[in-house]
Design a protein around this nucleic acid. Structure first.
Length: 272
DNA sequence: CTGATCGCCTGAGAGC
DNA sequence: TGCTCTCAGGCGATCA
């Protein structure tokens, strides 16, 4: 579910409410993708300073350590004050604070919660070091982006998904950004000229930032930490629209598979 | 180095 | 109704 916009929307929906909170206790449900790294009890007594995002990871800065949270494919967070509901079968992590309960709901359990002492921690480095440029940040410039595509013979769609050139672009927004840039998803990344890289750079920033404004995409059950759904899926130009008319030229949207993932594109509006 | 595959999990929907 | 199959927003590990 969650790509950069959904993770950022989630962050914005609870960062200000959890800032300064004192952790009373933590609870783990079924195992997630990686172990917490320490007993859940180790979180008690720590204080939450704030919440950052790196790619699709949320980083809860504590007065001692950092709690890394990844939503995987099906994860969502809620943060609620007042009496806590009993955890459901898919609620696999709770962080009880004096300002509310942060709860991770993740049916498929591809998500993770990892406690590290700092960003130099080996596990933190394994997860974060290889990540590419932040697409909404100042470092994401056309020339560095274009340089990152050099030497990449793989299809541009898959290079975007890999996340080592630019982070946060998942399966929905990769198709959407390539449509906006007029680039065929199968085009080899290293064959993209500087002018087309400029178009793609702009398209990535555009689609991700507009998706954040719309609260992300709710295809099935995504909601932010206040339980609110996203609406960007209503504006999708190609994703999930196989066989339907292109919103630009009217031709049928095509679907293909790249690396076990569905890709959607318009063969008229997107050139190789 | 890069690229292609493989799993990790559960649930929904299609087809028989 | 109930079974089997395919697919779903991610991504690290492994092998060529």
């Amino acid at each position: 579910m969650p790509e950069l916009p959904e993770v950022e929307v989630t962050r914005q929906s609870f960062a200000h409410r959890i800032a300064g909170a004192l952790i009373g206790s933590a609870r783990l449900g079924k195992p997630l993708r990686w172990p917490l790294g320490q007993p859940a009890e180790a979180l008690a007594g720590r204080r939450v300073r704030g919440v950052r995002r790196r790619g699709k990871y949320l980083l809860l800065d504590l007065d001692r350590g950092i709690l890394l949270i990844h939503l995987g494919m099906s994860g969502s967070l809620t943060f609620s004050a007042g009496p806590a509901q009993a955890p459901g079968p898919h609620d696999h992590f709770d962080l009880q604070t004096d300002q509310g309960l942060l709860r991770l709901h993740d049916p498929r359990r591809f998500g993770a919660v990892v406690l590290v002492e700092d960003e130099a921690d080996l596990v933190a480095r394994k997860l974060l070091d290889h990540l590419g440029l932040e697409p909404l940040g100042d470092d994401f410039q056309v020339d560095t982006f274009h340089a990152g595509l050099r030497g990449r013979r793989a299809p541009i769609k898959q290079v975007l998904l890999a996340g080592d050139v630019v982070v946060g672009v998942g399966n929905i927004y990769a198709s959407e950004a390539l449509f906006l840039a007029g680039i065929r998803p199968t085009t080899r990344a290293d064959r993209i000229s500087l002018p087309r890289a400029r178009l793609l750079h702009g398209a990535i920033r555009d689609v991700l930032s507009r998706a954040v404004v719309k609260g992300g995409s709710t295809l099935r059950d995504f909601s932010n930490a206040q339980g609110e759904r996203g609406y960007f899926q209503l504006e999708a130009m190609v994703y999930g629209r196989a066989g339907e008319p292109c919103r630009r030229c009217g031709g049928p949207i095509q679907q293909l598979r790249q690396g076990q993932r569905s890709t959607f594109f318009c063969r008229v509006c997107q050139r190789p």
